[in-house]
Each structure stands twice: as structure tokens, then as C-alpha cells.
Amino acid sequence: MSLSQDDVRRIARLARIAVSDDEVQESQSQLNQLFALIEEMRAVNTDGIEPMAHAQDVMLRLREDVATAPNRRDAFQAVAPSVENGLYLVPKVIE
């Protein structure tokens, strides 16, 4: 398998990262090198092996459906790039 420059642009788009032409070229070569390394793994026989998603095979805990965290909106919005009246501001999305 080998990634084309169009593949790299598509991946960058999926990752929401703007890339220059130079970066596409460099990423293409490094991602291809990395996937060559990863390719070794794909030849391994894993028939009947359960995927291991987590280090400990324990169920995620459940808890009572009650509010536990205090409202700290002001503190959390103090670190936001742009807020107004308690709302986060983003570029206009509806023309």
C-alpha cells in the first residue's frame, strides 16, 4: 500500500488540519514509511483472537443519574478564545 498526495490531503481534511504543498510531500513520505512498518503486523495470524481495547477487561462503571459537578461556567469560559453572554462564539455558520 502506498498513499498518494491526494490521500494525504484527504486525511488532513479528515483531521481538520490545513496543510501546505510542502507539508503534503513530507507527510506522504513519512506516512508511507510508517505504514510500511505497520504492514508487518498485518501478516500475523490473529484468527480467533479477541481484540483488546483496554488493558483491564473490566466493565465501565455506571453511576446514579444525578448532577455531581458544580456549575463553573465562568471559570471555564475565562480560558475560551471568544465568548459573549455565556456563549461560545464561532464564525458564522448560517448565511
Partner: peptide, 9 residues
């Protein structure tokens, strides 16, 4: 960026 892109792929 490289690791995020690898993961996205």
C-alpha cells in the same frame, strides 16, 4: 500532526 493524521487514517 503526523500522529493525528495517522490515527484519522
Amino acid at each position: 500532526k503526523r500522529r493525528i493524521m495517522t490515527g484519522a487514517y
